[in-house]
Design a protein around this nucleic acid. Sequence first.
DNA 1: AAGCAGTGCAACCGCGAAGCC
DNA 2: CGGCTTCGCGGTTGCACTGCT
Length: 226
Amino acid sequence: MRKPCCDKQDMNKGAWTKQEDEKLMDYIRTHGEGCWRTLPKAAGLHRCGKSCRLRWINYLRPDIKRGNFAQDEEDLIIKLHALLGNRWSLIAGRLPGRTDNEVKNYWNSHIRRKLISMGIDPNNHRLNQITPRPQNQSISPVLTSSGSMNKDTSKPTKNFGDNDRISDAASCLEDEKPGSHDLNLDLTIAIPSPSPLIVEKKGQNELKLTEEVESGRPFPTLHLFR
DNA sequence: AAGCAGTGCAACCGCGAAGCC
DNA sequence: CGGCTTCGCGGTTGCACTGCT
């Protein structure tokens, strides 16, 4: 049995107070980020390091952009989600000032619901057969090029390997017939690769994304979405 | 005005990866 | 190389707020 990260009785939980926020900000301003394990004690906080880290990253960091997501941010999230799946930290990394938690919440509360109501499976960005389609929308063949629906939407995401989710999106590519659409999901910037490989891992968590993703060019899910 | 349901968001939890010894 | 610790991520929960009846 794994022992809980915060088993101390005197640890605070729940919402952060203004005083706690100030203590944390003061400490990080003078000492910088890092060593979250020892930070709470050093900063005089009755919180576990994990909690401090989360509070800092999701709320207190000075470069955080708060407020509603712009349309282009929303579009980008959809595009990136189609390519990367639920890898919120990577998606958030492409959205300056947004945190993974924020993106994840926005996806689950807004975008996901929207897609479902439009008959798009938010897991694989394909059209569902049963759910109603939006009217007066030209249904792009892109999403259904193979004519087959994804059958494994109930697949637990925890079991996805690092590239499994990606290949889920990539399966659209494998299914499709050549020339059925002009979507280029290759994520390399420099030389477009003929292989169906979607993501090229560059070091730790760095990904190279295709210009297409960031250029705002039409993206299949967005055809339906608008 | 009160109760209820739906929604949004901050925070927690557990797991896996990475780093260190 | 293996075990332990720490960090980071994604899923989930719980609560406050809002709108509807």
